[in-house]
Design a protein around this nucleic acid. Structure first.
Lengths: 339, 339
DNA sequence: CTGAAAGCGCTAACAC
DNA sequence: GTGTTAGCGCTTTCAG
């Protein structure tokens, strides 16, 4: 079976005895084509197994129907929820996601953004507000709507749908302090890769200092992405070094759950001996025993709002007045940090 | 700032004083262009902020560099691992994933496959071996390599990289029976949506019958995707209806973890009073307390092997002899099912 | 309601 | 090492 070329509108047209233009019209709706002709064309399409070639249409129309998206990791429920919200919000408008992941690396982000822009997306959504200089130039020069999400960049490229990771981390510190904890540690990934994680750590430090507390219990759990296993290992290291720690704030619920399990293995009771808080409102934080105090950044809402921003920018839906939408994360106090 | 048209090779050519063809050559490597000319073109590219338009090249070359992939859900660590393995395996060959999700629905799969094929991918990878008749026809007629993964379809469309979900579930049953459990329940999503889940249930039933045991403790935990919360709720229902249950086999580790937490809340000891087993070797199964017995289907390996199959089929790498690669899942016995 | 001509931005093929 | 011509499969535009 030699890979014969797929049929084109020409082939349909020849078979039905009309011009390719009529085929083109018949395949879209809202166009005026004789009902019988249209039916004949439908039939021919079926018989020949014709599949519309959007690459050709894209070139001709200078519209691809792509919205490019970069996320740090494909294996992260928070970002997955954002992508789902975004995808669902765009699909009714014929827009399709072109997704890539950066592995928490700005150089990979730069390469990815360039690769994505070659596909001529109609808009581009990037997770985070930190980019290489060239990446920034690429985004600015693309002449398409740019949305930075999951962050509040100081100098946004275009649209922003995000929240302050630092403020959200501060909410957790305030809560832990309010329940009487003073010796509080922060567990996160190594600095320099995950800028949202770095912001959360900065927010932890700032809040601790605001309360006049020692902010030096900072544990690096490894190169992002860090997850449950790293959280457990870091917790063990922490409790060996500083057994008097009263509370642990983790950069994500996944680490926090790892911390919880390590406490269980070490026979340390949570929250009596140590309080644990996470970040992200992952499903596990709600269901584990005890459930984890966390912050909900509304990942899916970020996606939906980003979709709204894109649609507005493309003139496909009424546009919002502001180019900047700040989501208010919600503190969720659960048993893992009870007083 | 009117959205001016992005510069084309024409613009570069004019600026440098060469023909567009020379620009085209200069932008690729392995082509013979005068070194100075090439440098001048590089410079002009930078100055004008030119970004290569692959939509045009795709049409001309009749090659898009896309590999289409469908997965049931974007928010699933197993499929995410497969996608990562696939993406990593393809990217060195200039192939980019075009990803879509089906929401565990064959009709959505059909619509998605059609939409993806319009983009003229060079290969298509679909998760699962069950399709609507039309979807199957689309796949067969696309004249590109088709790979079905995570399953072993009876009548494959093309390539297969998967495993028997039924056999893997049987391994878990055998283990539970070997540790002395007889009254074993199965918790999964409602039938008819998730075919891998359905296969696992079928494997459970077959194995139970093989052991001469009652296979009627089948709990439906809701419409897929089902996860931890559904697992917990289903476990509560199960233990109210059938408190003498000795073991629970769950369709995934996520449900199994939900089951574990429900036991913890109900004061039921695992594995002493009840054994729990999951499926998928998610991170949580390894780290929770007690860790969960499960089966590792090697999701990332599925992705890497799928990449190899695609590359072979496209002649970009040495091809395997067989079109069918069966992965052997590994039983991981952990404390949640100790005798 | 239908068709002819032109062209989207790039590159294969063929000159020179 | 470089240029010219043609055309990928559609759709815009204009004419009928």
């Amino acid at each position: 079976m030699p890979p014969r070329k797929p049929p084109t509108m020409q082939d349909i047209a020849r078979k039905v005895g009309v011009s390719p233009m009529t085929v083109s019209r018949a395949l879209r709706d809202g166009t005026s084509v004789n009902a019988q002709t249209r039916e004949a064309i439908r039939l021919a399409v079926d018989e020949l197994g014709y599949v519309f070639d959007s690459t050709a249409a894209n070139l001709r129309q200078q519209r691809t129907g792509f919205v490019a998206v970069t996320i740090p990791s494909i294996n992260n429920a928070n970002f997955a929820d954002t992508v789902r919200g975004l995808s669902d919000g765009l699909k009714d408008f014929g827009l399709q996601l072109l997704l890539g992941y950066t592995d928490y690396d700005v150089d990979q982000e730069e390469a990815l953004v360039e690769q994505l822009l070659r596909r001529r997306p109609e808009a581009i959504v990037v997770t985070g507000g930190q980019h290489t200089a060239r990446c920034r130039r690429l985004l600015e020069g693309a002449n398409i709507p740019v949305v930075e999400i999951w962050d509040l960049p100081g100098q946004p490229v275009g649209y922003v749908v995000g929240f302050s990771n630092a403020v959200a981390a501060g909410m957790l510190v305030d809560h832990l302090v309010a329940t009487g904890r003073k010796r509080i540690a922060f567990i996160g990934g190594e600095a320099g890769r995950d800028s949202r994680g770095a912001d959360r750590r900065a927010g932890f430090v700032a809040a601790m200092q605001r309360h006049g507390l020692d902010a030096s219990r900072l544990i690096a759990a490894g190169v992002p992405p860090v997850s449950m296993l790293e959280g457990a290992a870091a917790t063990r290291a922490l409790l060996e070094q500083a057994p008097d720690t009263e509370a642990v704030l983790c950069v994500s619920d996944l680490l926090a759950f790892g911390a919880l399990t390590e406490c269980q293995r070490m026979g340390i009771s949570v929250p009596q001996q140590i309080a644990i808080a996470g970040f992200g409102n992952y499903e596990i934080a709600e269901i584990c025993v005890p459930p984890l105090t966390t912050v909900n950044p509304f990942p899916e809402r970020i996606g939906r709002q980003t979709a709204a921003a894109v649609l507005g920018a493309l003139g496909l839906a009424p546009a919002e007045a502001s180019h900047r939408l700040e989501i208010s994360p919600e503190l969720l106090v659960r048993a893992s940090s009870e007083a």
